[in-house]
Design a protein around this nucleic acid. Structure first.
Length: 749
DNA sequence: CAGCCTCGAGTTCC
DNA sequence: CTCGAGGCTG
């Protein structure tokens, strides 16, 4: 035995020992993670161990052990890019399409800021580049991270790729310590044509897709060869302000070395914006890159700060879009889809046609009124022209995404074309499809016995904001739903799947698209979700009107599943009376409209109310507590309580609850500002701030703003001219402050 | 009771 | 992304 052989032998010993150790540690971590114990090591440590194990096994395949956890859970990597939580949310923009939208925008801002007619309001206008937004984070002048927008909160880390783009500086001179630059990655028309002609990679439909595809390359070397460009137009987190105005801040970005759009202008009013919009539109074809509108922003940054944000958009900006591109094609036929709530939605199947660089073959038709050429109030749309199978129709992509039908060419309509007969029965289950008075959609009455509704509800159950089970998406749900041997027909079945597949994976793993590893992975993902946050569970149930936000509100209010279910059960008798009254009112309203007389709503409600049996004090209290929650109204509450009281629905929920453990909501975090968690009321005239602004400010600081003073009010802000509210506050001993004091509090936040 | 704003539901294509 | 409906304010 030579020296080198013995050394190799010793190395093999070491590798074997290391592999054995890694297998043991990873297996233990897997077990702790998937059973109900707390994980024993961090995700990062786990990944490192597993990667090391994989590496060794690849280098020494003969030493790989049959019981290695890498065999069970699959090779896993290449999940794409890492996730990045934006230091400051990347918002989208409100859209405008008409001159009126622009004047409304200006008027809304003026009234929010309480500006007099003589006070100027400057705005910037710049082309809206049709690319993808990218946030660049610089720390002490060094580019440290580039992230895509994603959902606005969490994006993808594409730093290595961004570093290959020539327009993106990697070092900045004289920049703030922390600087997040926001801008758009795009590809010019010329570069796009050359890229497609070169035959490198696939053929892209349009420059935007080409830019997106190029930026999201796993290998930065590929991105480097793609001719990507970047315009900077804004910023996120900052350690110090860039300037006092939008215009100067963008100029500062240019001075730091960024490309900024040369067509940016400063305007003084709506008229100026529209003139700029018209000029930019004229140049659209000759710019050499795609734009889809003009973005307006309030110039004064202190105004921007006062205006703040709505749910997903800043109040101080508007994207004024150019008219959408359109194309004519033939409508082959109209099909009906059944949604999770039973809604029958008509979809147009089209002869494929290119609109705005994308081939479109389907378009939404909304509902039966839309096909007939009416909106929900009965007013004509498309001048009342209906849509028939075989018609020639004009397609556009609303907001550049959703294909819709703008118009119908009657001159090309076949003589034997007949108006579309909207089905009165569900095409999936045959149950009657009813349109409730006042409703615009027709709904299948089959409930959970309708396979389409059942499968759509299941898809909702596993969706992102609900149970979010890895490896169990819409496709898999369809497959399992139809499976005769191992079916998933209701949520509880998901959690009994592994137990039912007792032939040792025999049935599942041999199926197309399912290997042993993916089955193991799926079962592990399901196990992981047996413990589920209460809000997700409520949302997952798919009760009408109960979406993500309402679910979170309910979870916060009740804290635990037992508290919620108990309250809903107690409220049931009271809810019944409300639901019945609301039904009668909707019916009366529709009938009155049809007969052209005034609806007697109050009378109708009172009549049903007095005829219904008294639900009792306990039920009344539970109901009052439910509808007293901020954001929970009677319709939502009625839908919720009714769902829980329905036998079949409740039985399904109970079967699910045998399989899972809802996690209680933890107590809210410590208050951060002196008014967080408090209820405020404004009264009288505020002189330096409008009501809307004060409200938005208070809410941003964690307070709730109510309309009237009650025992639950913590603070009354009274301006001059305060009347009954101030006296009531005095009566109740509520603290009253004036506007100066309010400004101090608001300023402090 | 009208007029905001936000949420929920449904939809398409990459 | 859009539409319609729900919820809340003035």
């Amino acid at each position: 035995m030579t020296g080198s052989d013995s050394k190799a032998g010793a190395d093999r010993q070491d590798v074997m020992a290391e592999i054995a150790g890694l297998v043991a540690r990873v297996s233990a971590a897997d077990h702790a993670y998937h059973s109900e114990d707390a994980p024993v090591i961090s995700d990062a440590d786990y990944d490192a161990l597993k990667r090391r194990l994989q590496q060794l096994e690849e280098l020494h395949p003969d030493l790989a052990r049959p019981d290695s956890p890498t065999r069970r859970v699959g090779a896993a990597p290449s999940e794409g890019f890492g996730k990045v939580t934006h230091a400051q949310r990347m918002m989208s923009l409100a859209n405008g399409f008409s001159r009126e939208d622009v004047t409304d925008f200006i008027a809304r801002i003026r009234s929010f800021l309480n500006l007099g007619a003589d006070q100027p309001l400057a705005l910037t206008a710049e082309p809206k580049i049709d690319g993808l937004s990218l946030s660049l984070r610089y720390e002490n002048g060094i580019l440290v991270q580039a992230a895509t927008r994603g959902d606005g909160v969490v994006g993808e880390n594409v730093t290595a790729n961004a570093m290959t783009i020539a327009d993106i500086p990697q070092r900045l001179q004289g920049a703030p310590e922390i600087l997040e630059v926001r801008g758009e990655v795009y590809m010019s028309h010329a570069d796009f044509a050359a890229l497609n002609a070169s035959g490198e990679g696939k053929i892209f439909a349009n420059p935007r897709n080409a830019a997106a595809g190029s930026l999201r390359q796993i290998d930065p070397a590929v991105t480097a060869r793609r001719p990507l460009r970047y315009f900077a137009y804004g910023w996120g987190a900052l350690s110090e302000p860039l300037a006092d105005t939008q215009f100067d801040a963008v100029a500062r970005l240019a001075a730091l070395g960024f490309q900024t759009n040369p067509l940016m202008r400063r305007c003084q009013d709506a008229e100026g914006l529209i003139v700029t919009w018209t000029e930019i539109e004229k140049q659209r074809a000759s710019l050499g890159y795609d734009i889809d509108g003009v973005v307006y922003k309030v110039d004064d940054l202190s105004y921007q700060a006062r205006l703040g944000f709505r749910a997903t958009t800043p109040r101080w900006a508007l994207a004024h879009k150019f008219p959408a591109e359109t194309a004519w094609t033939r409508l082959e036929r109209i099909e009906i889809q059944v949604g999770r709530t039973g809604a029958l939605s008509p979809v147009a199947r089209l002869a494929p046609v290119t609109v705005g660089g994308v081939v479109v073959s389907n378009a939404t038709l909304h509902n039966e009124d839309y096909i007939a050429g009416r909106d929900s109030s009965g007013a004509p749309i498309r001048e009342g022209r209906d849509i028939r199978e075989g018609d020639w129709v004009q397609i556009y992509r609303a907001g550049d995404v959703i294909p819709k039908i703008a118009d119908v060419d009657l001159s090309r309509r076949a003589d034997d074309a007949v108006p579309f007969a909207f089905p009165t029965h569900c095409p999936e289950c045959g149950a009657e499809a009813i349109r409730e008075p006042g409703d615009s959609v027709r709904r299948c009455t089959g409930g959970l016995t309708c396979p389409a509704q059942a499968v759509e509800k299941l898809k909702h159950f596993v969706s992102r904001a609900a149970f979010d089970i890895d490896g169990l998406g819409a496709k898999q749900i369809e497959m399992f739903f139809a499976d005769p041997a191992l079916p998933i027909r209701e949520p509880a079945h998901i959690f009994t799947l592994a137990a039912r597949d007792d032939a040792g994976l025999a049935r599942l793993k041999n199926r197309e698209g399912f290997g042993e590893r993916s089955v193991e992975k799926l079962f592990a993902a399901i196990e992981e979700r047996r413990r589920i946050p209460l809000a997700r569970l409520i949302f997952a149930l798919g009760i009408r009107h109960v979406g993500e936000v309402a679910s979170a509100t309910l979870a916060r209010h009740y804290g635990s599943w037992s508290a919620l279910a108990g309250a809903l059960d107690r409220a049931a008798p009271a809810a019944e009376r409300h639901v019945r009254a609301e039904e009668a009112v909707a019916h009366e309203r529709a009938e009155a409209a049809a007969q052209g007389r005034r609806a007697r709503l109050k009378e109708t409600r009172d009549r049903v109310w007095s005829e219904a049996p008294d639900p009792g004090d306990e039920a009344r209290a539970a109901w009052a507590d439910l509808v007293g929650i901020d954001g929970i109204g009677e319709v939502l509450a009625g839908s919720l309580v009714t769902a829980f009281a329905q036998e079949a629905e409740r039985a399904g929920i109970d079967r699910l609850l045998e399989q899972i453990t809802p996690l209680d909501v933890e107590a809210a975090p410590e208050a951060r500002t002196e008014i967080s968690g408090k209820t405020l009321v404004f009264t009288g005239t505020l002189e330096r701030m409008t009501r809307a602004e004060a409200k938005s400010r208070a809410e941003a600081m964690g307070a709730k703003v109510a309309g009237s003073v009650s025992a639950r009010t913590d603070l009354l802000i009274a301006g001059p001219g305060a009347g009954s509210k101030a006296s009531k506050a005095a009566e109740l001993g509520v603290t009253v402050i004036d506007e100066d004091e309010w400004l101090r509090i608001a300023g402090a936040g």
